[in-house]
Design a protein around this nucleic acid. Structure first.
Lengths: 346, 346
DNA sequence: AGCCGCGATGAAAACGTTTACGTTGCGCCC
DNA sequence: GGGCGCAACGTAAACGTTTTCATCGCGGCT
């Protein structure tokens, strides 16, 4: 009545468990006729092999684990989508584990993965090298995403944050001629945020030498972007452009400026970073640095799969960077916008 | 050098594997002193128990599987977020399996879940009762989401589609006084779509008797909503309001109307269903039926967890419905909007 | 006719745990 | 002082597979 095991099938088909295993797995060694009989019995009994038992002996789970800091925001859902997409075509399953505020929390999650996954994709933007070294099993193939870590031990895949930031500043400063560019930075301990801010600083020196540098603190949240916008308003001295370290902050800033009666992009251009899906729907549509998030997830999984197939292939273990370009929409004034937009409502 | 097992710990600590198991699991039967020694050895060797082996004997994986039709759109990512949130607080892991176009694809996914999960959350808006009956293991606790299925075999959790549709039509027809309401329907084989369309029809009869019924076909995608909007424009006879069966179609329609130079909500009100995060960011902000998607995922997991704790508890196996209310923003004209908005660009 | 080889099959070990059961040793009571 | 109970610990079975190894026929070759 409960679950039917391989023994039941064997008994019913009048063969040994070994033959059932061979027949169902397509390993050779059984007559076509007995294989057929076994298959019929298995289908009739609705037999489905027990994953854990199989993994135990096979040492393969066909599952990869994804460890994410949390699950809020479109960046993460897009990333998961990319990973899942690629996993599916490879016949892999996806065990997600998100929202790890504390280190010990993440450590616990990491532990429970042992024996349940063949490999790991870890998004750890915080620079916690020692943590990973301490908690990642040596034997588990791992791909690190957006991590400051280097080295032959893991395979790391990063976004081209400096390049993206540079391209955006270049666009604003030289193509649009806006030299007075403020920057809304992300959390200081976040690796992407660090790289983007540094990219901004370098690019400003390159494309707008002598222009004032203005950096506001943010937390990658819409709310912190809103506060940064409010801060700009309150300062009484608006920049000609605001470059936010991610899209959600750009949107928050946009809302704040809009409420303050500022014409975007007429008076102030606003741009972001990531190109999350929402970016194209806000008004004015957000000019931003396009990170192909889905592709990021996809290639992370591809790399991991390659690692699984050839475990000691150090070739794929090298660090790599995913390029990103800028996508120009309305919020930077590249296209003439019909009218000044002021909406005090909401 | 490879993985360290419980035997290694036992040998190193000078005890038997049984004692190691007892010490590490906190089952009684070991001196405080030996437990301490064992714990130290385990920590030093970086021992972490093998999940599959443990599950095999324990018959518990502490993992639940989520079977989703696909992973596109914010609805699904929000749902997963809700499930994950609740799973984390219960110490459960999440095995996601998405994008099942064909039945056999889904069946395969279902099979591989055996022995890897303790329970299942299945989102199957298509009315495929026989499929589930055929492929769901009898013994696996299962929560069905947005499913037409009833019965004591599974626990099902639905959105109050009729109520939501009714509330929206009521708002448009009686509170806003717009009786000429067109409807953009979803895929015909989708259960939610069916219920929402029926809800629209009933509510129209109730709140706008005699008013013309106008139903356009859609596919739940932004693109199909756009086409529906274009169709309305081409017809030369615009309704006073458009009620789309989901937000993405509403947004597509919004864009089409905007491009056609139609004032929304001045000439035509546009409303949606779901309240996905994007809804509040479009201009005008979308009035919609709020489905607390995160809560939906959360309660699905809560139900499943209850099922796991008390397997033969038929009390929680009953069908249940999650209420939804409408959230009024700008796209239905409830608030006076500053100016007519026409933007031919893009 | 006797052997050899090979293809099909079965028996049993192995994977890494948990747990029921048996075995100690010790202190206690009568 | 001998038996009894109990706590601490070890032994081994069990979970459901896969896989190695041995066994068994059987046909073809010399």
């Amino acid at each position: 009545m409960t679950t039917v095991t391989i023994k039941d099938v064997a008994r019913e088909a009048g063969v040994s468990v070994a033959s059932v295993s061979r027949a169902l797995n397509g390993t050779g060694g059984v007559t076509a006729e007995t294989e057929k009989r076994i298959r019929e019995v298995a289908a009739r009994l609705r037999y489905v092999p027990h994953g854990a038992a199989r993994s135990l002996i096979t040492r393969r789970t066909h599952t990869i684990g994804a460890l994410l800091p949390d699950m809020y925001g479109e960046f993460f859902s897009e990333l998961i989508r990319g990973i899942d997409l690629a996993a599916r075509t490879r016949g892999l399953h996806l065990l997600v584990s998100s929202a790890h505020d504390g280190m010990d929390d993440a450590a616990a999650a990491l532990r429970t993965m042992r024996g349940r996954v063949d490999g790991l994709i870890v998004l750890s933007p915080r620079a916690d090298a020692s943590f990973l070294h301490a908690n990642l099993p040596e034997s588990l193939p791992t791909v690190l995403l957006n991590s400051p870590l280097r080295g032959r031990r893991y395979s790391v895949l990063n976004i081209d944050n400096p390049g993206g930031a540079r391209a955006m500043v270049r666009h604003l400063a030289v193509e649009r001629g806006l030299r007075d560019i403020a920057f809304i930075a992300g959390p200081p301990d976040n690796f992407d945020a660090q790289q983007r801010e540094e990219g901004y600083r370098h690019a400003m020196a390159e494309f707008a030498p002598g222009a004032p540098l203005r950096v506001l603190r943010g937390e990658f949240t819409e709310d912190s972007g809103y506060r940064a916008g409010a801060e700009l308003l309150a300062s009484g001295k608006l920049p000609r452009a605001v470059f936010a370290a991610n899209d959600m902050m750009a949107i928050g800033c946009l809302l704040a400026l809009r409420e303050g009666g500022v014409d975007v992009p007429g008076e102030v251009a606003v741009t972001g970073f990531d190109d999350i899906p929402i970016a194209r729907y806000v008004t004015p549509a957000l000019t931003t640095v396009r990170v192909r998030i889905v592709d990021l997830g996809r290639s992370a999984l591809e790399r991991l799969a390659a690692l699984l197939d050839a475990p000691d292939q150090t070739a794929t273990t090298q660090a790599d960077t995913l390029g990103c370009d800028i996508v120009v929409r309305d919020s930077c004034g590249a296209r003439p916008h019909a009218r000044t937009f002021t909406n005090k409502a909401r």
